[in-house]
Structures are given as structure tokens and as C-alpha cells.
Design a protein around this nucleic acid. Structure first.
Lengths: 142, 142
DNA sequence: AAAAAATGTTATAATCGTCATATACTATAT
DNA sequence: ATATAGTATATGACGATTATAACATTTTTT
């Protein structure tokens, strides 16, 4: 099992490869806002654990395992963003919150949140009701 | 701002004091499943940061700050448990998931989840719809 | 009140992920 | 082909948390 930090790297590497075809150390460092030296170290670990194959100075590719996991991690991330957005969390909190919680939810919870998102998307009245509750709570504060 | 680990301690100490009137090092250690020496160290830090007053070998009490924060942390924990339960997450995953995510959600997200829980409690059809979606997903797997 | 048991503390070390610095390698431009 | 700029690595350190083991204090038992 990858640690939370390893998951961050795998997820980001997957996204980079999807979008631009490769993932260099410096791309990863920039995307995750860490130092290149940290990337090198982590990438070596991910190679050892067979999430990717890494040739130093040359590049890296995800293994079958790595790709499979990366894909799920990206799905999970997007689902959670969608969820928080639907229930009315402010944009500026969403990214950080998802970043924090994504590594700590069982797939069971993710699946149930998936259903919930599906429900909320199909049920505009629900969203309306939530907005109403939010407004009421705000007024009470005055 | 307390770190996640500090929050765990404050929350647990608050619960212990609520339920049995005091919180000894060994109680805290048992509740959090860490060694007593770790508790001592953390409690010293929490004393330094004024979440509690600690006299070695004798005991500790929460400061006004500590109590206030403890209360919010317990509320947050219970809300998240309630949320996961309502959407149908299995009992055996709930505790650990909440333990993992509670420290990583903004109060904005917590408030919106609070509204959502209120909505779900008032709207049994929503729960029914979720159960239905869950069942369908299960059947698709067959 | 002394001995034994229980509880709490300290010192030291390990782990994880990070950064900083110095060094090594690669690619580009001339 | 060489110099240079850009990129990657190795090494060592640190901050946060935990554990181990030795030690100190308090409580209980006799």
C-alpha cells in the first residue's frame, strides 16, 4: 500500500503523462510544489516498490500497477472535488480539502459518495434545499 | 493552530474529561493506542501551547481555549460519523475514515456537510434513492 | 512506614517526508 | 567539440511523531 505522500506523487505523475506524455522530475516538483531533490528521492522509492520504472537522468514510466492506481486516484480526486462543489463549499477551500482527505477514505466511502454525487446531480431540488439551509444558517448569525 | 496529532489528543482528552471527569496519561495512551511516553511528550507541548495546564505526575486540565477547541473537534467527529452512516458506509470503515479525514476539512466544508446531514435526515426519500443506487451498482457487478 | 506495584517521565533512537547544498549529468548554442 | 545553461542526484539535516528502555514518582499493600 502506498503512503499518502506516495499517492500524491503517483496521481500527479499519472496526470502529467496523460496531459503531456511524460513526467520529468522538474515537472513533478513544480506540480507538487516540492523541491526536485524530494522528487528524485520519492521516485526512487516508487521504482523500488514497482509503481514505476525509473532510469536516472533519462525518465520514467508507470508500471501496469502504477497506471491502474494512478487512474483510480485521479477518479477519486475528481469525485471529491465534485462532491464538495455540489454541496456548496467555496472554491478556495475545495482543492486543499480534497488534497487532505483523499488519502484517508476507504473505497467503500468513495463508492457511497459516488452514489451521493449521482443523486445530487439528478435532484436539483436537493441542491436548492441545501442552499436554503445555508442561507438560513447565515441569517441566524445576524 | 494545532497539528492533526495535537487535535487527536485534545479531542480525546476532552472526551475523557467529559465522561469520567479526568484524563490520566495512561487513559489517553490507551484511548489513542500510543505509548505513555508519547502522551507525556505531547501533553508537555499542549501545555506549552496553552491548550491545557499540566503538572507532571499529578494531572492536567484543559484551558478555556482547550475546552473550546475540544468541543468543536468532538462535534466535527460526530458529524462526520453521522454523515458516512447516513450515506451507507459500512460500520467497520466509518471510524477509521473519520479519524483520517477530520483534521483535513475546512470549517466551510464541515458546515456544508452539516447542512447535508440535516437535509438527509429530513428527507427519507433521499436515503432510499441512495440505497437504490447502491443496489444497482452491486447488480451491475454480477 | 517500608516494600511492592503501578504509573509517569526522560533520554535516545527510528521513521517519514521534507529542504538545502554541493555535485553530476544532459542539452543547447556557438 | 566545447562552454554554458538547465536539470537531476547524493548527502546530510531537520521537524514531527512514535517507540524502547531506563529511571523517577506515586499509590497500594502489608
Amino acid at each position: 500500500m502506498p503512503t499518502p505522500s506516495m499517492e500524491d506523487y503517483i496521481e500527479q505523475i499519472y496526470i502529467l503523462i496523460e496531459s503531456k506524455g511524460y513526467a520529468r522530475v522538474s515537472d513533478i516538483a513544480e506540480a507538487l510544489d516540492v523541491h526536485p531533490s524530494s522528487v528524485t528521492k520519492m521516485v526512487q522509492k516508487l521504482d523500488k516498490d514497482e509503481y514505476l520504472n525509473y532510469e536516472k537522468y533519462r525518465g520514467l514510466i508507470l508500471t501496469t500497477q502504477g497506471k491502474k492506481i494512478g487512474k483510480r486516484l485521479v477518479y477519486r480526486h475528481e469525485l471529491l472535488e465534485q462532491f464538495l462543489e455540489l454541496i456548496g463549499v467555496e472554491k478556495e477551500n475545495i482543492y486543499q480539502d480534497v488534497e487532505g482527505i483523499e488519502h484517508h477514505l476507504s473505497w467503500n466511502s468513495i463508492d457511497r459518495i459516488g452514489d451521493l454525487v449521482q443523486y445530487l446531480e439528478k435532484t436539483p431540488q436537493a441542491i436548492e434545499a441545501l442552499k436554503q439551509l445555508h442561507k438560513e444558517a447565515d441569517e441566524t448569525l445576524k
